[in-house]
């Protein structure tokens, strides 16, 4: 952009983006683009089932593969008090599953290896013995009084509602609805979101 084309301004003035130059050349440094000397690669073994007790995990064949540096299980993490981590709303989330898997895709083992293909091969050699439990697949099912309890890891947890959240002045809100000429309702289904770095 020529110097005489640049318009200096405050709020409301357009600016050229500075990051486009590297992105349009394929020179963005996204997380998977990073290369460091001696870098290792991780692959995660995930649960194929939504709800199950983990009876046993046999990682011996994975450890035996050349190029595999570490095969991490929830038990190894728990021995170091690292199996659970704090998350939103004062809840905790499993880093690697210990006693149960509580959603399909939950992380069960992590393999660190010299190469991502070796790490994937090693995951395929891990044998997990699952005792399958009844699954819950939507919030309506989860709210039923006889629903199986998923978060039995939480002390004092009853049922499947993990937290309540409210904000604002309930009394005035209720009055506004009571005084309204027309009240309409909408049912929103919000899919699960999982933010990931790119």
């Amino acid at each position: 952009m020529a110097l005489d084309e640049i318009k200096i301004g405050g709020l409301g003035a357009s600016r050229r983006r500075v990051e486009d130059n590297r992105f349009i050349r394929g020179k963005g440094n996204y997380v998977d683009d990073i290369v460091l000397p001696g870098m290792l690669h991780m692959e995660i073994l995930r649960s194929p089932v939504a709800h199950a007790r983990i009876k046993s995990i046999d990682t011996s064949a994975a450890w035996d593969m050349p190029g595999v540096r570490l095969v991490l299980t929830g038990e190894m993490m728990a021995a170091r008090n690292l199996a659970w981590m704090p998350t939103l709303s004062y809840d905790t989330a499993a880093v690697l599953a210990t006693d149960k898997v509580r959603f399909q895709g939950q992380e069960v083992c992590a393999v660190i290896a010299d190469d991502p293909y070796i790490a994937k091969d090693a995951c395929a050699k891990i044998v997990v013995d699952y005792e399958i439990l009844p699954p819950i697949v939507n919030p309506v099912q989860a709210a039923a009084p006889d629903a199986v309890q998923i978060r039995d890891d939480k002390a004092g947890q009853v049922g499947n509602k993990v937290f309540d959240w409210e904000i604002g002045d309930k009394a005035r809100t209720d009055k506004a609805f009571a005084d309204a000429d027309l009240v309409s309702k909408v049912e929103l289904h919000y899919p699960r979101t999982h933010p990931s770095p790119i």
Binding site: P66, G67, V68, R69, L70, L72, M76, R80, D114, I118
Partner: peptide, 14 residues
Amino acid sequence: MSSLYEEIAPTPAE
């Protein structure tokens, strides 16, 4: 196992 990071000598895949 005594430590989290056990050394495994990388060998070429046979």
